[in-house]
Design a protein around this nucleic acid. Structure first.
Lengths: 184, 184
DNA sequence: CGACTTTTTGAGTATACACTCCATTTTGGA
DNA sequence: TCCAAAATGGAGTGTATACTCAAAAAGTCG
């Protein structure tokens, strides 16, 4: 049978609560009790919808990953600046989600499937960056372009990492500097 | 009064066990039981020496941080390649400790003192890299050099991050590529 | 040896956690 | 209006965790 409206609303409330908790306190803050309290729901209701806590977290995490690469439609036409700006905006505007993004990626030792998801996402990202680079320089596809893209993305991630430690760090300026250096 | 030898040996065994567990399975693998089992010691002995589990972990973590920047004596004379090679060796040879290094840095939201320690460490590292860069180019100290060093270190951290996700990633090659690009 | 101190033991405590169960209530289509 | 399916409440389960404590053992030194 089709799901009832009230169940769908509950699912939404739970996902919202999970998203907020992740953003506020990272993975450790996301306990079942915390989720249920914030969503105004009991454990039984949670497990009527999700099979595990992990499932809810994964669902929210997927959003975070997708948020890093917005507008997948534009893939193939966007400039390098578009891509970098999108990442800068993700880090500065959705700062806590950005921390979750890094946190989950690093602590993925416990769950290989998460690591694999991140890796796939990263590879796609490198491709988009490499494409944009080639379009810019009118050069032919070469191994060096991919390498350049890999290093640029590494720098962006590393600088985001730096920014998590110290929010007064000027992420945007350094990110743009990295791009300029990449172009040389 | 002076400590008995046996107590000092126990402390060493506990720290060794903690170090091994951190390296093998990351933060999650370091439970009190795991530490005590491996060290061949009971919980009471642990708490006779350390006031908390965190204290033992912190002590080991300090070592990991220091291992990233070897030979602090040479500070002021080493080349950029020396510094980068040291980091490459740290990541590839002490791979699991490298993961802990990243893991702790990102999850330091729960403990500000850890974040501050990492930040201080990072700032010192940037200075050493910037110094080496200046010595290389015979240029005067400028803001751009610091910025370059910050981006290069970001790239190295980001590539290490990448390597944690996929150990078949050629970290050394990309790290050297990043340095080459930095020199241009 | 004998007095004193340090260390060790290991059962025990308190707590937090993810998850289950099922009687009860609510929903929405026929 | 009826009723089967869906959703809910909330007490309960099992397990893992960090940490404690008092008594016993072992080390140190005159």
């Amino acid at each position: 049978m089709a799901r009832y409206q009230v169940g769908i609303r509950t699912e939404t409330k739970i996902l919202e609560a999970t998203r907020e908790l992740l953003a506020e306190g990272g993975l450790d803050a996301v306990t079942l009790k915390a989720i249920c309290d914030r969503a105004g729901v009991q454990a039984g209701s949670f497990y009527n919808i999700f099979t595990s806590k992990e499932q809810a977290i994964m669902q929210v995490t997927k959003e975070a990953i997708q948020a890093v690469d917005p507008d997948p439609e534009a893939s193939g036409t966007e400039t390098l600046d578009d891509l970098v700006d999108a990442y800068i905006r993700f880090v500065t505007d959705q700062s806590n989600l950005a921390r979750v993004y890094l946190q989950i990626a690093v602590s993925s030792s416990s769950d290989d499937s998460v690591a694999r998801r991140f890796l796939r996402h990263h590879v796609r990202r490198v491709e988009r960056f490499a494409d944009a680079l080639e379009r810019e320089t009118d050069a032919s596809i070469s191994g060096e372009t991919t390498e350049k893209a890999e290093v640029l993305l590494g720098a962006l991630d590393g600088l985001a990492f730096r920014w998590v430690l110290d929010r007064s760090f000027d992420f945007a300026r350094h990110a743009n500097f990295a791009v300029a250096q990449c172009r040389r």
